[in-house]
Design a protein around this nucleic acid. Structure first.
Length: 817
RNA sequence: GCGGGCGUGGCGGAAUUGGCAGACGCGCUGGUUUUAGGUACCAGUUCUUCGGAGUGUGGGUUCGAGUCCCGCCGCCCGCACCA
């Protein structure tokens, strides 16, 4: 394609200028109204791809647009630079993860700059930067001191391929590791946890006030998983003063309890198991403990092989009857009390279990007529339930709960699905957990003046997969800060989600030393006004960051901050390749560089804005390159028009000039509205329409007003400035001396100009359009219907008598005949 | 199974509150310029038996439905035995 200008040179020129002049640096003392725009800082796994391009194009557009709207805009960037891929790459290449990481960051940075994305680079935060690590560790120790960080034994997911513990989300539905594909094992290990469950209630409640996509809010609510119920005691038949505590959300079904089940991990299991049942129980327990949680809660596999009778009985407090106690793998030791009551008639799992083991099934809720399923979980009148008979589920729940509180050591209780956050990783390339182990003093925090603890450089990343920290004598051996005796360092590192849980706070104040950030400075910017990222972070990153901020406030590191970090969230769609998911492992990512080198960054940006609604997925197809060429064509047409190529400009005014001015101002309205609604595809379309109009008008035989043309050109460049910043800046500079296009205020539509004096009114007969009439905008209902009824085309279409006239001036008249 | 979203030309999509369906772009067709191709520019492009019909499908509300309500069909996303 022959371009009217040297795209590569122009883009390079402006990128250098924005970078060298720090055009988008912003001072914390800036007096203007503030706006914090943040695109999720990327993981530097390799060169940039179209997902990055899309994400950072949106972010950059908001930054430039809000700046033109006279906000003090905070636009920081950084890199989420710890993580397994860098470590695995280093193992493969026999080098140090830092070398790999630094190289990837350099690539990604270059790619972002060539996109024309602008940031306050003084605020760059990299997770692996010792300056940042120091404060990550300070925060860890503050959590430890506040009791929010603790060490405990727990059954965890262990990936043999990655040689580390995994978070639940890194385990796929089939029980394999999402990264290596190895089958994940369950191991009982002592690990570090953050007490995120302390915040379950607040994390759940605050979801309501967030201006986030409903989808993401629902996912957060599901993840936290609140359920209200009663925890009470089923007395042991053999020893009525002791009991088995169970949790239920359906106390109303108590009369239908025909058995109880404990988890294989349950502390009382040993005691409950009689000698005759010992072997069977032991076999079940052994197998269950080797399974993943996913396998255990899966509905696959015969239930008959998944439970065993313990030989003991407990007493149903409602009926005073003894019921048998089973052990089964589907009951989890980590949720509730690790023991449940079995109500086969009103719970599907219990129904299946009871059927498999021949346990009695007693209905306590009347199912609807014709109900032929097993368990009925809906509402209905209670039966077979003594004092609950006749009550609906809600009323019976309340009455039954009262009864349990009085008679079975019951308490009303809320349980959450959310578990404490396992933060330790047996990996090298992460932020070391800053504690030492002393034989005398136990777990001892590393004193703050010795932070950061940084992993040594002289390590060999061998192929065993074990973290070299665990065997590095120089790192391992230290002395106890308390007693001075020999001690060993913690060799686990923190989950990389801890790094991304507070980077946005450091970015708001990267200048203060000695503390993670100055809360007064940070409060000037927080919360983030617009957060932009991928839907894949819908749960974990966003939940963890929300927890961090609340916890930091409560332990005094961040007083005065809003308790929710991200006021508004936008999640962009994914890029697919001909309908399939793109990923690095599939090797089907599309790099932006070839586009920068040919059509230019502006064209690629316009494509991403124009292709469809930002929230929707984009399918990269055979047609995509043609659409990108179309965007380049649009830019070239803008360029030629602004450079007055073959125009016919005159000094006089003509009637067409008035109409063009109106179009210009209507375009301001349309684009501004589209920008606010994140409807960038229609914003681009509106500009394309304006260009079409201007191109024809400015080249028409009768001539076009030079003055009106100049206003149109200015306006078009201003509206284009956030979308295609390079070409807009270049054309502006060529025609208008002084401050650049991005330093100009966003244009405001002249309301008087936009208002039409007359409008085309549609006349329908029985709902079909029969005439279009030019009418004044303030035409009355009567005048409109009279005018419509006089029209020859309308008269011809009206066959019978007119029964009704619906007049909605000035848009429409509908005649019913 | 539960929850949420979506279904519009050959394709991506537009239509903010019920009021001219298909803006804008891609592709395609024709034309002008050009030795030719490409570029650029102009015109056309839902279907049609030219009456009309038409927004997955069947109903409903309304003068009027892509838009609101109910039932189906299909696709996508999340949760999935959390007691």
């Amino acid at each position: 394609m022959a371009r009217p200008f040297d795209v590569t040179a122009v883009e390079a020129k402006w990128q250098a200028r924005w970078r060298d002049e720090g055009t988008y640096n912003v001072d914390n003392a800036d007096p203007r109204e503030r706006y914090y725009v943040l695109s999720m800082y990327p993981y530097p796994s390799g060169a940039a791809h179209q997902g990055h391009v899309r994400n950072y194009t949106f972010g950059d557009l908001v930054v430039r647009y809000k700046t033109m709207r006279n906000f003090a805009v905070l636009s920081p960037i950084g890199f989420d630079s710890f993580g397994l891929p860098a470590e695995n790459a280093a193992i493969k290449a026999g080098s140090h993860p830092r070398l790999f990481t630094d190289a990837r960051i350099a690539e990604l940075k270059s790619s972002l700059q060539r996109l024309g994305a602008v940031y306050d680079w003084r605020r760059e935060v990299n997770s692996h930067d010792p300056a940042y690590m120091k404060y990550s560790q300070v925060i860890f120790l503050a959590f430890l001191k506040a009791g929010l960080a603790y060490r405990a034994m727990a059954p965890v997911n262990w990936c043999p391929g990655c040689a580390t513990v995994l978070a639940n989300e890194q385990v796929l539905a089939d029980g394999t590791c999402e990264r290596s594909g190895d089958l994940v094992e369950r191991r009982n290990l002592e690990q570090w946890f953050f007490r995120i469950t302390d915040y379950a209630e607040e994390l759940l409640n605050d979801v309501d006030v967030l201006d986030w996509p409903e989808r993401v809010k629902t996912m957060q609510r599901n993840w936290i998983g609140r359920s209200e119920g009663v925890e009470f005691e089923l007395a042991l038949a053999s020893e009525p003063t002791r009991g088995l505590r169970v949790f239920t959300t359906r106390p109303d079904t108590g009369f239908g309890v025909t058995y109880a089940v404990v988890a294989p991990e349950h502390p009382l299991l040993e005691e409950l198991t009689t000698d005759e049942q010992r072997e069977e129980v032991a076999t079940l327990v052994e197998r269950a403990l080797g399974e993943t949680e996913l396998e255990r809660t899966s509905s696959d596999g015969a239930l008959a092989k998944r439970g065993a009778f313990t030989g003991s009985y407990v007493v149903n407090p409602f009926t005073s009857e003894s019921v048998p106690v089973y052990v089964a793998d589907y009951v989890l030791g980590t949720y509730g009390t690790g023991a449940v009551m079995g109500v086969p008639a009103e719970d599907e799992r219990d129904y299946d279990f009871a059927t498999a083991y021949g346990l009695p099934i007693v209905r306590t809720v009347t199912p609807p007529e014709g109900f032929d399923g097993g368990a009925y979980t809906g509402d209905g009148a209670h039966i077979n339930s003594g004092f609950l008979d006749g009550l609906d589920v809600a009323a019976a729940k309340a009455a039954a709960a009262d009864f349990l509180v009085e008679h079975a050591k019951g308490v009303r209780k809320v349980n959450y699905r959310l578990r404490d956050w396992l933060v330790s990783r047996q990996r090298f390339w992460g932020c070391p957990i800053p504690v030492v182990y002393c034989e005398v003093d136990g777990i001892v925090p590393v004193p703050e003046d010795q932070l950061p603890i940084v992993a040594p450089d002289d390590v060999s990343m061998d192929k065993t997969g074990q973290s070299p920290l665990a065997t590095h004598e120089g790192f391992l051996r230290t002395t106890c800060p308390t007693c001075g005796r020999p001690a060993t360092r913690e060799t686990d590192t923190m989950d990389t989600f801890t790094d991304s849980s507070w980077y946005f706070l450091r970015m708001a104040d990267p200048f203060t030393e000695g503390v993670p950030f100055d809360p007064v400075e940070v409060a000037k910017w927080m919360p983030v006004d617009q957060y932009i990222g991928g839907i894949e972070h819908a749960i974990l990153h966003l939940l963890y960051a929300r927890f961090y901020v609340k916890a930091l406030i409560d332990i005094g590191l961040a007083p005065g901050l809003a308790r929710e970090p991200f006021a508004r969230l936008f999640t962009q769609g994914m890029i697919r390749l001909n309908g399939t998911k793109m990923s690095k492992s599939k090797g089907n990512l599309i790099a932006p560089e070839p586009y920068y080198d040919t059509v230019g960054a502006d064209s690629l940006r316009l494509f991403h804005l124009f292709v469809g609604p930002p929230a929707d997925d984009v399918d990269w197809t055979d047609q995509t390159n043609d659409v990108i060429d179309g965007c380049a064509r649009f830019i070239d047409r803008v360029y030629r028009l602004c450079e007055e190529d073959r125009l016919n400009l005159v000094d006089a005014m003509t009637p067409s000039d008035v109409a063009v001015r109106r179009d210009v101002h209507r375009t301001i309205e349309r684009v501004t509205d589209a920008m606010e609604r994140w409807s960038y595809n229609t914003a681009v379309a509106a500009l394309m329409e304006l260009l079409n109009t201007l191109s024809k008008w400015a080249r028409q035989d009768g001539g076009a007003s030079r003055e009106v043309f100049d206003e149109a050109r200015r306006t078009m460049l201003l509206l284009l400035a956030p979308m295609a910043p390079h070409v807009a800046a270049e054309l502006w500079e060529r025609h208008y001396p002084g401050p650049g296009v991005h330093q100009q205020p966003w244009p405001v539509a002249d309301a008087a100009l936009v208002a039409h004096e007359s409008v085309v009114m549609v006349v329908q007969v029985n709902g079909k359009v029969r005439a279009r009439l030019e009418v004044p905008v303030d035409i009355t209902e009567e005048a409109a219907s009279d005018l419509a009824l006089e029209d020859p085309a309308v008269i011809a279409a009206v066959k019978g008598p007119v029964t009704r006239v619906v007049s909605r001036p000035p848009r429409l008249v509908n005649i019913i005949a």
